[in-house]
Design a binder for these strands. Structure first.
Lengths: 223, 223
DNA sequence: TGCGTTAGTGAAACTTGTTCTAGATAAACG
DNA sequence: CGTTTATCTAGAACAAGTTTCACTAACGCA
């Protein structure tokens, strides 16, 4: 039939064919065990190659070979290199979220808690700078065809920050804006660090600076 | 001799050869008239192609052809596609800076002035969304080999913001931090808009939100 | 002005992301 | 089971960024 992809996303410039039999689930279709295993192997190879040499070191042929899968299959699972790396990031973020949940920030003030959390994440990234490079570059380079996946990453990041603020539920619109700006700063500061234009100390200052925005926002709905 | 480039920057993974005769200026070496003209033609073609179809539409062979220059020459002037697009951005930013100088923001408060200025710039970008796409994607995708050029862009942006704040000279360290965060937000918000994950209204809110940081910083040295 | 050096040209080659094709396998299903 | 259909494989083919090479043109200077 009409070449249905595993991933719910379509490719770059292809227009929707619209041909979709009724029972196809728009969300992630469930995979067989072997398929789940393949997917996992691919993500693992991707992360391994990335932590060696960053974005450039993740070569699709090599990922395919290392995960024991044909090139065509790799592309069926992840329709582009950027998709693959963004998915890798999703994966890593999930780990980080769980880790952070286990040891919530110790600071009192929300702003300080967020800053502490982000600095923890930052230190984790510093341990694998190449991996960080691959993931963050992919994330900011992603075009519209990757929007759903990038959005997922964004939601995960937002959740982490809201957790740190101590209000996973019922944030005000104002607070959400602040969180969005914090996220912007986080990504962009990482970029400047990764490309050697800002020091670790600099990133720390930027994070702390932007976190001051939190103090400006309503403490809660019911101020 | 040892292949000296026009551009002061070296290529991707090459290490400095260190062989540099004393009289070579580290800054932009001066070009002859014909060379200056070539450079200009190249940047012009680049911008034209970019405004057609964004990052992907800027193809090195086509840029070379359109500017009447051999491919090898193009690479001598701009050692990679990203270098070329970042230089294009420098060029555009310079224009914008001049334009903004002529009509400074009308608002009273520094924060509002900066927000107004950035929204003006944003509207200019909206007129050429593809061009914006090419430039911003190149900027955030740039690796270490492009750091000097990206830094120039960053300095230009900083200058624009400081101008809007009304203190081109003697900003405090705190104020510089705020400006840096504003710049982060600016770039990242543009990215989310360009990739269709945020609306124009959303970008406006983010800009206004981050500009509130300015109110938090010392009004001047001599508070 | 002549000459050695640097810059520019044209074309081919190389690299890596992406696509395509034909055939082998596995899954689903009657 | 046997058949039909979706996946997977191997490998070629294609596209665009980048490099290389052999050669010519332009420049700078003694």
């Amino acid at each position: 039939m009409h070449d249905v992809r595993l991933s719910p996303t379509r490719r770059r410039n292809t227009f929707e064919v619209g041909q979709m039999t009724a029972e196809v689930k728009p969300a992630a279709l469930q995979l067989t065990e072997r398929q789940e295993a393949r997917r996992r192997r691919i993500l693992h190879s991707s992360a391994r190659l990335a932590s060696r040499g960053g974005f450039d070191a993740v070569q699709m042929r090599e990922v395919a070979e290392n995960s024991g899968v044909a090139l065509g299959t790799l592309y069926r699972y992840f329709p582009s290199k950027v998709h693959l790396l963004v998915a890798t990031m999703q994966d890593q973020l999930q780990h980080m979220h769980e880790t952070l949940r286990k040891r919530p920030p110790t600071e009192e003030e929300p702003a300080a808690r967020v800053a502490q959390t982000l600095m923890r994440a930052f230190r984790a990234l510093q341990r694998e700078p190449h991996l960080a490079d691959a993931m963050v570059r992919a994330l900011t380079f992603a075009d519209r065809s990757v929007s759903p996946e990038v959005d997922t990453v964004s939601r995960l990041t937002t959740a982490i920050i809201l957790d740190a603020m101590g209000l996973a539920e019922a944030p005000t619109a104002e607070q959400l804006s602040a969180v969005r700006v914090i996220e912007h700063t986080w990504h962009s500061a990482l970029i400047t660090w990764l490309s050697g234009r800002a020091s670790i100390a600099q990133v720390k200052i930027d994070i702390e600076t932007v976190c001051r925005l939190i103090d400006l926002t309503a403490p809660a709905p019911g101020r």
